[in-house]
């Protein structure tokens, strides 16, 4: 099956700033593809290029078999878009919003009247058809925006941060909706800052930084390939001393020297000194990273770290399996990007 969206060597510059820098991406039909990246990584610009709203400085976009931007209007007829900010029409009711949006796709009132009940059902807004947009909650608006993206029964749905600003209940409802769409064989392309969301929903993930795809794979592959399987987060009184090498349990293996963490600064610890994991009693950690008052130990053998921590009652810790967020932070660093 041909790829619903294929980006090749895509480049977009604004003055001297290269926002998208030779980006390659190929979606597989019927799957959910996540685009992750820090703020300013080029995600939204990539989506705008993919929709043919802006022209690339170099590279090609083929959307649903159509070459963009020349054939953008034809291609967009089969795409649904959920924008980052809700832009529902506040002058209309829920039903009218869907009906009017259908008009932009050339769908007649009659056709839309046929489609609206199913769309309202999908959005969980069946009882709200005559409600004004201003009376809807944030979650309802988001669901309506998703339903609106489906008025043309698209093959590809592009979602720019679909759950930002929603409470967990609302977020779960959106997730259910997206899963149902995948069940119907639609291809999804979504950007998100929630790694949990990406891990749950996406079959494939591309991590973007500085306008380029830096890694790509399924969530599981990324976690297996790019990070130690366990994380011990350590915090509390005495962390500095422990990290600096307070002699610990007798008989513990001699710590080996570790490479210092990537050198990207921890955010706002205000001391400027605590970012270097020393190599003494923390030697059981495969790799350590200090962020503010917390030390992250990425390790293959968490038992030893945990055992050692037992001798330090002042220290508290959380032992958990590594997740996509750990991969993301490792690959893109802990610096703020705003």
């Amino acid at each position: 099956m041909i790829s619903p969206l294929k980006l090749t060597g895509l480049t977009k510059r604004y003055g001297d700033t290269v926002v998208v820098d030779g980006l390659d991406l190929e979606l597989k039909a019927g799957r959910c593809h996540g685009l992750l990246g820090p703020n300013g990584a080029g995600k939204t610009t990539t989506l705008r290029l993919a929709l043919g709203l802006i022209a690339a400085d170099a590279g090609t976009v083929v959307l649903l078999g159509q070459r963009l931007p020349e054939r953008a209007e034809v291609a967009r007829a089969r795409v649904g878009v959920v924008p980052q900010m809700d832009n529902l029409d506040p002058d209309f009711t829920v039903r009218e919003n869907l009906q009017i949006y259908g008009r932009y796709f050339g769908l007649s009132k009659r056709e839309m009247i046929g489609r609206i009940p199913a769309l309202l059902d999908f959005a969980g807004l069946a009882g709200k058809s005559e409600a004004l947009i201003t009376t809807l909650s944030g979650g309802m608006k988001r669901r309506l925006t998703l339903a609106r993206a489906l008025v043309n029964d698209p093959d590809l749905v592009i979602l720019d941060e679909p759950t930002t600003g929603l409470d967990p209940q609302a977020r779960h409802l959106i997730w259910q909706g997206l899963r149902r769409l995948m069940g119907q064989g639609k291809t999804l392309l979504l950007t998100t800052h929630f790694m949990e969301e990406a891990e749950r929903l996406c079959d494939d993930i591309s991590v973007i930084d500085q306008g380029r795809v830096i890694v790509q794979g399924s969530p599981r592959e990324l976690i297996q390939t790019h990070i130690e399987p366990h994380v011990v987060e350590i915090y509390g009184d005495g962390l500095d001393e422990w990290q600096a090498g307070g002699r610990s349990i007798p008989g513990a293996p001699r710590p080996t020297t570790l490479p210092s963490p990537s050198g990207r600064g921890g955010e706002g610890d205000g001391q400027g000194s605590a970012n270097h994991a020393s190599s003494l009693s923390v030697g059981h950690c495969g790799r350590c990273e200090r962020a503010g008052e917390t030390l992250f130990c990425y390790t293959r053998s968490p038992e030893k770290v945990v055992a050692e921590l037992a001798a330090h009652p002042g220290l508290r810790y959380l032992h958990r399996p590594a997740n996509l967020e750990d991969v993301f932070l490792k690959l893109t660093g802990r610096d703020l990007r705003d």
Binding site: R76, A77, N87, D89, Y104, G106
Partner: peptide, 14 residues
């Protein structure tokens, strides 16, 4: 303010 035009630009309209 309402970004109505942006919503329309995501459809086949230019």
């Amino acid at each position: 303010v309402q970004k109505t035009w942006e919503a329309i630009l995501n459809t086949p309209l230019t």
